[in-house]
Design a protein around this nucleic acid. Structure first.
Length: 847
DNA sequence: GATTAGGCTTCG
């Protein structure tokens, strides 16, 4: 105890020989001796102090005063000293004159208080002093510097450190004091198997840290370790958040820790593998023939960036943690060990390096986000590098995209779409745009691979998509990174130049890519798209995607074999059918069959036949009585046949007050009555009661009319159920079309536009089908246009614009289109067909 | 007041 240990070669000897400091007892005595030395002016330029109880002031001349970094001035007084911890130490450099210099970064430190907002300062050691202490000083050492000089730091703006820097050389009488390790500590750290644990003096409390290879079952211990694996906090199936952390240390020990807390903030704030953690109070128990740790009462965690030289500021939510110089030393040692231990590292992957099918951790900035559906959130993220793969753009409702449109536009070449699924959706929801994140175990999936296509084909470009799948396997999850984290600092450095570079290289057309959407664009979007597109392309149609693909001439399209996809530019020479109402068909999404909408005549005669055959069959009388879920009314039609009309009013609370919103089941009605009733009632289901129970008709006529829209079922794919199956629904309020269809066993047919466009670009001509299943191309609902005259007029106007009647070819507008080619087998031969996709009509701005 | 999870890839 109390021994002064000389450190640096001859300096040490001189110190030991030239002063009577050996065997002194206690720091006060030490202080006096130093005092004497300092006053005598013979103080050695580099000395080690015993780290012991008591403050450093006691060991320095009494007139010396500590000056905090922030109070430093260009001309310091000679009785000032600074104290700090070596955050980084750089290799020695030799000037042409033979003089040596090395640089250190010092962090202001205190011994027994929590460290908050530490300041760092660049420090240069010159001349002979370099020889004295370049090997003796280590990262993590606490030093006291006297008689230093102060100058302005030329690199302050770049490295963010103090605007001043310290310079020390023997000539000016500078001295470097360094705290020596205690004997006990040295013994513990030099032999990790030693039963003597590393004991660190912290204020009034002793904390013992157990090397991981000495962990025993049934005890509660404190440990230090380097994170080898971790799962970011996630909501467990119980009441708590859970986080799994595997730590390792130099003892070759390894410990799986399963941590729970109702507050995710109280779990360790680990950002990446390699972080250093200090856990207080973990309980060791056995599970699956292995020891594992669970957080015990009073558990607290500190997490440190694992980067060498990074600030010693722990991430924690704990308000009262203690952190000593010895803690700093331990963290530094673990950092050094971990950085030299390859198995702990996880390679960082930038977007520019992503390989197909790879799972990796992506550290990035959140540029925008959008809810896709209940199970997925879209994050648009950027890491400052450009992903070389063709990226899948996730179609998204622009109205739900959260983020600065200018940023989204500016960065669209550098951002990737990441789909976040299932249990991660909640976390994704709460992310703020602009945040720095790590998305752990993101999956880079290549959608298609087809290398042997011509370069103009869309298929040649396999699209990469990024998913964060559900579950927590492999640490899947999202971590919000704190600003000061070294990864964020690095990321910022990458992002800034990338962003400014990108700004210049972007054309206006990229705006369209941000508008990429498979749904019908909203009117303002269409208008914007139209304006941009008109200005560049003067096209009557615009693409909703694939703007990066270059245009192919129709002659080249015709020369190539299907299947292919192209971007083309052509004029609409002709189209069919000219009678636009004929362009709407019924499509079955299940069997993909296409059929005409039954004509009024057809429905009328069907209804008449149904009644006639019903009467002729002389079956049981239609059930005219009430049922628990409907009330029945019958009356006679005023026609020659004294036809009986039966209406069953489905009971619901709403029906009592608003007949316009009620549902009726009708029997024995004519076409005219069907029309009239459908105007009055929200929902109408034509039925027949030729059998004992109420049944649907045979799907030759609409099975349901809702808000005047006639809905049909597929004869091939439906398995009609008795209408009584609807009874349970009558309790649940407003009825949903798809639910009714499902309950009644009906496969709904969809209204679609089907037209044939004859396209001509001068190099060639081809017929392409317009198959507008999602009401995208015209921006008009095919189901609505059937019953809405205004929409029919609009459709006519659009077609007159695309293909003006009675004008010369010169007045025809150009159409920008995506088309794909495919084979259709015609029994004996295969014919090539073309279909338009991802294209919408550029609406006139006043529409 | 116990339970949760206890690393080990995916519906999209």
């Amino acid at each position: 105890m109390g021994k002064i240990i000389g450190a640096a070669g001859c300096v040490c000897e001189k110190l030991v020989n030239g002063s009577c400091l050996l065997h002194s007892k206690g720091s006060r005595a030490l202080g006096v001796r130093y005092n004497n030395l300092a006053i005598s002016g013979s103080v050695m330029p580099f000395q080690q102090l015993q780290e012991a109880d008591g403050s450093i002031e006691a060991q320095l001349p009494s007139h010396m005063q500590r000056i905090e970094f922030e109070k430093l001035q260009l001309s310091p007084s000679s009785n000032q000293y600074v104290e700090g911890t070596i955050l980084a130490k750089y290799p020695t450099h030799e000037f042409g004159t033979g003089e040596k210099v090395f640089k250190m970064v010092l962090e202001e430190s205190t011994t027994q208080q929590s460290v908050s907002n530490p300041e760092t300062i660049n420090t240069f050691i010159f001349g002979k002093l370099v020889n004295d202490c370049e090997h003796a000083l280590k990262q993590g050492d606490r030093v006291v510097l006297t008689k230093f000089q102060v100058s302005t730091s030329p690199s302050a703006r770049k490295d963010g450190r103090h605007v001043l820097q310290l310079e020390l050389s023997e000539e000016t009488g500078a001295t470097v004091f360094v705290y020596a390790k205690s004997v006990k500590e040295s013994a513990a750290s030099s032999n990790v198997n030693s039963p003597i644990n590393q004991r660190l003096k912290i204020g009034t409390q002793d904390y013992t840290y157990v090397p991981l290879n000495q962990i025993k079952d049934g005890v509660t211990v404190n440990v230090y370790g380097v994170v080898k694996f971790f799962k970011p906090p996630y909501r467990s199936k119980g009441t708590d958040f859970s986080s799994t952390v595997t730590i390792v240390d130099a003892s070759n020990g390894r410990l799986n820790c399963v941590l729970f807390n109702g507050n995710a903030d109280l779990l360790p704030k680990i950002c990446k593998v390699g972080d250093v953690v200090r856990f207080h109070r973990i309980k060791i128990q056995e599970f699956n023939n292995e020891l594992q740790a669970i957080n015990a009462a009073g558990f607290s965690a500190l997490t440190f960036d694992g980067t060498l030289g990074a600030p010693m500021k722990p991430r924690t939510n704990s308000k009262s943690y203690q952190f000593t110089a010895n803690d700093q030393r331990t963290v530094e040692e673990l950092r050094r060990w971990a950085n030299a231990t390859i198995s702990i590292h996880k390679p960082t992957v930038k977007l520019s390096e992503v390989k197909p099918a790879e799972y990796f951790d992506l550290t990035c900035q959140l540029i925008a986000k959008a809810v896709v559906d209940r199970s997925a959130v879209l994050l648009k993220v950027c890491d400052g590098t450009k992903c070389p793969h063709t990226l899948r753009q996730v179609p998204v409702d622009m109205n739900t995209l959260e983020g600065d449109p200018a940023d989204i536009h500016r960065l669209c070449k550098l951002t990737v779409d990441v789909l976040i699924y299932d249990n991660h959706v909640g976390a994704a929801h709460s992310l703020k745009v602009g945040t720095y994140l790590t998305i752990h175990n993101i999956h880079a999936k290549l959608a298609t691979l087809n290398a042997e296509k011509p370069s103009t084909s869309l298929e040649t470009v396999p699209e990469m998509e990024f998913h964060l799948h559900g579950g927590t396997s492999y640490g899947r999850g999202i971590t919000v990174l704190p600003e000061e984290c070294s990864d964020v600092q690095q990321l910022k450095q990458t992002l800034e130049p990338a962003i400014s570079e990108d700004q210049d290289s972007l054309g206006d057309l990229t705006l369209l890519e941000t508008l990429n959407t498979s749904r019908r664009p909203s009117a303002p979007e269409r208008a914007t798209a139209t304006r941009v597109e008109r200005c560049h392309q003067e096209s009557a149609t615009v693409l909703t995607a694939h703007q990066h693909i270059r245009t192919t001439s129709l002659r080249d399209v015709l020369d190539q074999t299907p299947p292919q996809k192209y971007r083309i530019r052509a004029k609409l020479a002709n189209y069919e059918p000219k009678a636009l109402h004929e362009s709407v068909k019924l499509y079955c999404p299940k069997c993909h069959s296409l059929q005409e909408i039954p004509s009024d005549d057809h429905v009328d005669s069907f209804l008449q036949d149904a009644y006639t055959s019903g009467s002729a069959a002389a079956g049981p009388d239609p059930p005219t009585h009430d049922a628990p879920w409907y009330q029945t009314t019958t009356w006679e039609a005023e026609d020659q046949r004294r036809r009986q009309i039966t209406v069953h009013f489905v009971k619901s609370d709403e029906a009592q007050s608003t007949p316009e919103r009620s549902t009726i089941l009708v029997e024995g009605v004519s076409l005219n009555e069907l029309y009239r009733l459908s105007k009055r009632f929200a929902m109408l289901i034509p039925i027949t009661s030729r059998t004992k129970c109420l049944t649907l008709n045979d799907l030759s006529i609409p099975f349901l009319i809702q808000d005047r829209k006639w809905h049909y079922g597929c004869k091939h794919c439906s398995h009609p159920q008795p209408v009584n199956a609807l009874q349970p629904l009558s309790q649940t309020g407003p009825w949903d079309l798809s639910v009714i269809a499902k309950v009644l066993g009906v496969q709904l047919l969809r209204h679609v536009f089907v037209m044939r466009f004859t396209l001509d670009d001068g190099s060639g001509s081809l017929d392409a089908f317009l198959w507008d299943k999602v009401e995208q191309f015209f921006g008009i609902s095919a189901a609505d246009v059937v019953i809405d005259e205004a929409l029919q007029d609009k459709l006519t106007r659009i077609m007159d614009t695309l293909c003006p009647p009675r004008t010369s070819d010169d007045d025809c507008p150009w159409l920008e289109c995506c088309i794909k080619s495919y084979y259709v087998s015609d029994g004996s031969e295969q014919k090539t067909h073309y279909q338009i996709f991802d294209t919408v009509v550029a609406e006139a701005e006043d529409v």
